[in-house]
Design a binder for these strands. Sequence first.
DNA 1: GTCTATATGGGGATAGAC
DNA 2: GTCTATCCCCATATAGAC
Lengths: 199, 199
Amino acid sequence: MTTPAKSLSRRSANSRQQLLKASIESFVTTGYHATTTREIAQKAGLSPAAMYVHFSSKQDLLFELIEHGHHEAYRALADAIQQADGPREALRAAVYAFTEWHATNHRLGRIAQYEFQYLTPENRARIAHIRKAIDASLRTILQDGARTGALSVPNVRLTALAILSLCIDLVRWFPSRMHSDPQEIASNYADIASRMAGI
Amino acid sequence: MTTPAKSLSRRSANSRQQLLKASIESFVTTGYHATTTREIAQKAGLSPAAMYVHFSSKQDLLFELIEHGHHEAYRALADAIQQADGPREALRAAVYAFTEWHATNHRLGRIAQYEFQYLTPENRARIAHIRKAIDASLRTILQDGARTGALSVPNVRLTALAILSLCIDLVRWFPSRMHSDPQEIASNYADIASRMAGI
DNA sequence: GTCTATATGGGGATAGAC
DNA sequence: GTCTATCCCCATATAGAC
């Protein structure tokens, strides 16, 4: 009992997803500016003009990708923290989840970080709150741990920054010949972060 | 007693330096692909065609910058290690110097890391040995430290990777509102790296 | 929603005079 | 070594038919 309207909207949603998927491939390989809308359209199996039915511009496509990437990474982090018990476990769980997300989604993560600077200032501002929430999440864990003595952290702000920096920088090199298993690297990074927090 | 030939070669060297300086500004702000050779030439006070006397292409300009950046960063690291005494001091000195270099030269460092992927495969290969030397330098310190017991490092390869990752990721965010002093961040990162190596 | 055709502007690199 | 002028190709985005 598929109505013509439903059929159309399904086709549309498919093209939209194809375009998003194609743009991840292109942006991560060639970079935002060197990627042409023709390339993206071709990878998605559409004409160059079809993109503009689904996205108002190439910038709009970039924004959707980067916003989605930030959203998913934050959700992985926040979910892990919520289920953890105490600062030590929370730190391990947070670093594990955040690292695993960036390893598993290294292409999208790389676009979210490397092409972030090519968002318009307005689009960057629309994502700022997620970035702040990520920072705050880790700072809170370290602060709680330092207060209760569960962790030993001389400089909470800087240690939080360093731990996140480590996790995020994964997207620059992952996967490599030596490391290509998201769970393995996540587990190791959780160990390293624990050491940074004095465990 | 300046001969015409000397005068000419001085003028030429100046233009070359101006072009390199201008391209750092442009590449770091706009990225390699979105930067036009016209922009670079204008910033250097030259006509669009003048660039091609000093560099054979825009790619050639990028390569010179990135090679120079890698070379300088490695030299800062190697010098620090050579003057240090023992694995603990070597680790501190290495992380301090490498971090300080990336903080001080964050624009060039950012180009060296972010635009590296846009070098031709041939140009990338011409820099590979410097990257390997940087990795090997830190691995050697950790290996020596683990052997003599001066350091406690469960996983030498991964810890070396993580420490370098931390230092390099500076170029993504440095300077920020909270951190803008290269020596201060270098000192703090040396502390953090020491913790990662079990001190 | 998708297509073909195209408007419109720009960009890397070169030619040739000085 | 530097300039002006230009070749030649390509990119984003839109127009209008189906």
